[in-house]
């Protein structure tokens, strides 16, 4: 009987210890991140795009360009986040719309390359957020 009790005690201890260990680890990580007071990416994007969103509120579909193209994962995430904060405005990748949203790494991006492709700077909202307008064809 004693050995059976010991086995049960061992199993209880193992389950409790592993469960406690995993949860404590998760809790510690959470506390560390919370203490660092890092803003999540979406909140940063919401702040970056707040003025543009206000400006585009009567538009249904606009274009989207960015300089994140060198990394497809990063580019995809940047595009999804921009779409998330600007919804219900639909963002379509490319330069075929009248208005095109530019999402750039740098606060002062080089926009010359876009201007050679029939896009003109309509307004610079700062923080790498630029609205282009399509000119001509």
């Amino acid at each position: 009987m004693k050995s059976k009790n010991l086995k049960v005690f061992f199993l209880f201890s193992a389950i409790i210890i592993f469960s406690f260990h995993n949860n404590l680890q998760a809790l510690q990580k959470g506390i560390e991140r919370y203490k660092r007071k890092e803003l999540d990416q979406i909140t940063i994007y919401e702040e970056r795009f707040v003025e543009l969103k206000e400006f585009l509120q009567n538009h249904l579909v606009v274009g989207y360009v960015s300089d994140y193209d060198d990394n497809s994962d990063e580019d995809g995430i940047a595009y999804s986040m921009t779409q998330y904060v600007l919804a219900p405005i639909i963002l379509v990748r490319g330069k075929k719309r009248n208005f095109i949203v530019g999402n750039f790494h740098s606060a002062k991006p080089n926009i010359k390359a876009y201007e050679t492709e029939n896009l003109s700077l309509y307004r610079d909202f700062g923080n790498g957020v630029i609205l282009f307008q399509r000119v001509g064809n």
Binding site: K29, I31, Y34, D40, I42
Partner: peptide
Amino acid sequence: FAFLLRSAINPH
């Protein structure tokens, strides 16, 4: 508590 912390850090 860990769940709520995670949610507070990444509310979206």
